[in-house]
Nucleic acid binder design. Structure first.
Lengths: 199, 199
DNA sequence: CAGATGACAGATTTCAATATCTGTCATCTG
DNA sequence: CAGATGACAGATATTGAAATCTGTCATCTG
């Protein structure tokens, strides 16, 4: 048996995720988590002041996991900016869709959680938009891109918004329709035409 | 007193809308409608075979009302295609946002109904995409637009999808945030750059 | 006889009683 | 004494019995 390592916030988060997976968002209680950990619920409250805080921490963790790999694409060199933007957006869509597909129950659960923590979601969006802005900036520097709006961050946001049907969980129900690939690629083409300097 | 005009399907739809407005989607029953009309519920079932059919008819009616004025913009002449597309998309956003704002209770109600009748929603989307396709076609004919995708209808769909945050009810919660106008106008610029022939 | 009715069976919803949960804190334990 | 506990007072969720609704159809009425 593994030794009963000290109860850490991290350990609680892991178990909470498991409880969310098995019970669903609306039925996951702090007591469930405490029971799963074999401690009293008071102990959990020592690490997270409220249930909302605990759920928020799990949400933040999940979002970070979902978008962590993307930053690598931004940093890579040796690729044209249009290719990079294309690859970044495709990776975002693929990651979200995979999450939604492999465990729909859990995904629905997180969808519920996202609604509860708009603050966290906004931070996440800010991070993603920041990455798009970075790619646009690289493209502009290379003479490949133009900003559709004078403000680079608003331009990046426009790219983010225009591709919303392919990364916003609100649209998850449609991510496994046939034809979705075609639609995605058509929007990608449209957006790229919009930001690319005419040859 | 007005004469008790024969009970028509139209009359039932009107009253159903009223009941939906006052009771909300989940609490609106066929019996409520029948009571409001002063008839037995069996009579309502003479015009609509099921509750679902009645709700669907109301939904269809509402969607038609929401998009009816747009077709006029498509048909107008004497305007460049970019201006027309801009105006059409702005009108769509304005109409949806107005609906959502003026009676949020009723809007939420219809949002629920839309989920029940995906068939009707798809028809509605098909109609809107058709109108966009028409505008694109006019623009291509005038040498102002290019198709981002070889297939005109897929191109139109891309324009529709790229502007989803500003017409899809799933995003309605954000339609009264400050900054939404800026975001909309940035996406509009991006999309128009995408479909416009470089000068 | 075309159109309306209301009784009926089964499905769904409501509501109030009951059980469980959240968050606090005085107390316990190693 | 740092960390864990569990009793406790609201708040929230569950449950199942009773009420209401859906959809049908034999019957009624003008």
């Amino acid at each position: 048996m593994t030794k009963p390592a000290a109860l850490t916030a991290e350990r609680i988060l892991q178990e909470t995720e498991e409880v969310l997976r098995t019970h669903g968002a609306s039925r996951a209680t702090v007591m469930d988590v405490a029971r799963a950990l074999g401690v009293s619920h008071g102990t959990v409250y020592r690490h997270f002041r409220t249930k909302a805080e605990l759920r928020e921490a799990v949400t933040r963790r999940w979002l970070k996991n979902a978008s962590g790999a993307l930053v690598l694409i931004v940093q890579e060199g040796g690729e044209s900016a249009p290719d990079k933007l294309r690859r970044w957006l495709s990776a975002l869509f693929a990651a979200k869709r995979r999450k939604a597909g492999e465990d729909p129950q859990l995904f629905a659960t997180y969808e519920g959680l996202l609604g509860e923590h708009s603050q966290v979601v906004e931070e996440h969006i800010g991070e993603l938009v920041g990455q798009i802005e970075e790619i646009l900036e690289q493209g502009v520097a290379r003479g490949e891109f133009r900003y559709p709006h004078p403000d680079p961050s608003i331009s990046a946001r426009a790219v983010f918004d225009a591709t919303a049907p392919f990364h916003d969980p609100k649209h998850a129900a449609g991510w496994h329709r046939s034809g979705i690939e075609t639609e995605f690629s058509a929007v990608l083409d449209l957006v790229l035409l919009g930001v690319t300097v005419p040859s």
